[in-house]
Design a protein around this nucleic acid. Sequence first.
DNA 1: GCCAACGTTGGC
DNA 2: GCCAACGTTGGC
Length: 235
Amino acid sequence: MPPKKKKRTSSQLSEQNESPAKLRKKTVGPKKMSIQACSGNKTSEVKCSLEQKDAGEKGQKELFTYWLMKSEPESRIENGVDVKFGIEDLKAQSEQTGCWDGVRNYQARNYMKDMKVGQLAFFYHSNCKMPGIAGIIKVVKEAYVDHTQFDKKDPHYDPSSKQDNPKWYMVDVQFVRMTKRFISLTELKKYHLEHKSSGGALKNMALFTRTRLSVQPLTEEEFNFVLNLEDKDPI
DNA sequence: GCCAACGTTGGC
DNA sequence: GCCAACGTTGGC
C-alpha cells in the first residue's frame, strides 16, 4: 500500500472481535503506511524488547512478542493509488515512523491489537522481485482506528465499516535498522523445509504455514533464529 | 450452517 | 501474467 498521508487518530476501544474460534482470518492486508507519526520515539537499537511470554493457560490466547509485517516495496496501482511501501519508504518518513494502515483481514488486525510498544517486527518485502526480510522495525503506538477505512479515495476504503463501530485498526511502527543482509524468502524456505524434518526453529513459521497473513506472530525462537542468519552466509 | 462461486494474496 | 491457496460472500 501506498503511502498515504497522515493523520492520526487514536482511539481504541470498541471492537468486535473476531477472534475466534473458528478461525477467522482473512488475509490481507496490505500495508502501507503513512506518514508521520503519530508517536514516536527514536533511537534505534537492536534487540530489545522484553518478553512476556505467554499466558496462555486457560485456553486463552498466547501473547506473542515478535512479529513479521509484510509490505510491497514495488509500485502497484490499486484503485488508482500506488500501494508501494518498502522499508526505504518508512525510513524516509518523519521520525522514520509510519502507521500500518490498510490491513483488512481480521486475523492480521487482531494480531496488531496484541502488539505492545517496544516490540520488534521484521519488515518483509512481498509481491516483488526479491521477497524476504529487509529490516527490523518496532511498535511505537498500539492499535488505534485506521482512518483509511472511511476514506472513499483510499484503496482500502471499507463501506461496511461505521464510524461508531470501526472494523479496522492500525499500529505505528518505527524503523530500527536494516538487517545486516537481506534474508530472502528462498533462504527462509530452505530452513523451514529442513526444520520440518529436524524439528528446528522454523518448522512452524507462519510465513509458510499461513501464507496469506500479512501480519504474523513469531515465537522468540523463530525471531532469534532468523536474526542469527544475519551473521551467516546465505544458504 | 453448508458450500459453491468469487475475490485476493503473493510466489513464481 | 499465471495460478494455487485460501478467505469471503451469499443463497439456500
